[in-house]
Design a protein around this nucleic acid. Structure first.
Lengths: 174, 174
DNA sequence: AAACAACTATACACGAGGCAACATTCCCTA
DNA sequence: TAGGGAATGTTGCCTCGTGTATAGTTGTTT
């Protein structure tokens, strides 16, 4: 085999592929936003996942969701959801409720304290979004971005499409 | 729609804010892509962060980067970089090199085996990107998306802007 | 020259999350 | 009316990454 002299011209060329730079842009923007957001959320005693759990529950009818549905929406494993709910239950933000029809499953439901916490957190969070995301783009640029993102999201994550408010039947398709 | 008790009308209203749906779209698309990609990377024995480390090193001059610069680019902590490099050093994908001018710092440099691993992994990875990301959008839609992403990335993560190939002085602006 | 501040990498303890095993419950069929 | 198979949530064990403290190195100031 030809050895060490030639490093690897093929790989060298692939590294500059526009597809690589595209995902690089996407992922770097994501981590940047996450850093900004999580710093603000930490001031209110919430981690990123805890905030997401709180949001997804609050947007659901009755402010509650079954554990497995919550896992599907957050792309956490079921055990991960169990532990997050344990934590937030201990903190009084959400509580468990036995499912009356199916004794296997249980609901996670936001407590009044949880809603209050969300109320405290959301305004500053929305400001942050406007500052580092939506506010940086022109109106038509923003709509174009959202349309592209929606296309990708729907393709790559069909089970989370029900996450939008108003769409009934969360987690019905399986 | 059940007329459930409205706990907090303010928060209720904020939950439907378009900014929330915007970041929701962004983050859900991200996690979806990460899931797809990491599944494929796992087949080649690489985690997502290991792949990113390998990529960032391979794109750098000499296929090497200082530990702290690597930490800055990947938004991992310095200790996190130490552990990843330990692992990949043990697997023979990269090795450490002492810095001749500054005895405090050390370099992480890709080994030939590491470049070979990258060579094995990249083609399928590029196919996956085309399938779930770039290929889903029209040309003008894609460029619009990339421009918007670049705007956000540059605003939110200025230290990683040097990640693009060809831009000299990685980690020079501080 | 000596003290001091700024960096760089590592060691250690901790929390977070995933996988696999497990107990329980539901559903369907023989 | 059992009984097998699928579904649901929880727990033990493991890996991974962070924050803090530590040691070693370099440059600066008096």
């Amino acid at each position: 085999m030809s050895t060490s002299d030639i490093v690897d011209p093929v790989t060298e060329h692939l590294l500059d592929d526009p597809r690589i730079t595209a995902v690089g842009l996407f992922f770097e923007a994501h981590t940047g936003l996450v850093d900004r957001f999580s710093a603000q959320l930490a001031e209110h005693g919430l981690s990123s996942v805890e905030f997401e759990v709180l949001m997804r529950l609050a947007r659901s009818p009755g402010h509650e969701l079954r554990m497995s549905d919550l896992a599907a929406q957050t792309s956490l494993s079921t055990s991960g959801v169990t532990r997050v709910v344990d934590r937030m239950d201990r903190d009084g933000l959400i509580r468990r409720r036995a499912c009356p029809t199916d004794r296997r499953s249980s609901y996670a439901v936001v407590t009044p304290a949880g809603m209050r916490r969300l109320d405290e957190t959301l305004p500053a969070h929305l400001d942050l979004i406007a500052r580092w995301f939506t506010g940086l783009l022109g109106p038509e640029q923003l709509t174009a971005l959202l349309e592209a993102l929606r296309t990708i999201r729907d393709a790559v994550r069909p089970e989370a499409t029900a996450g939008a408010r108003g769409t009934a039947a969360a987690g019905a398709e399986r």
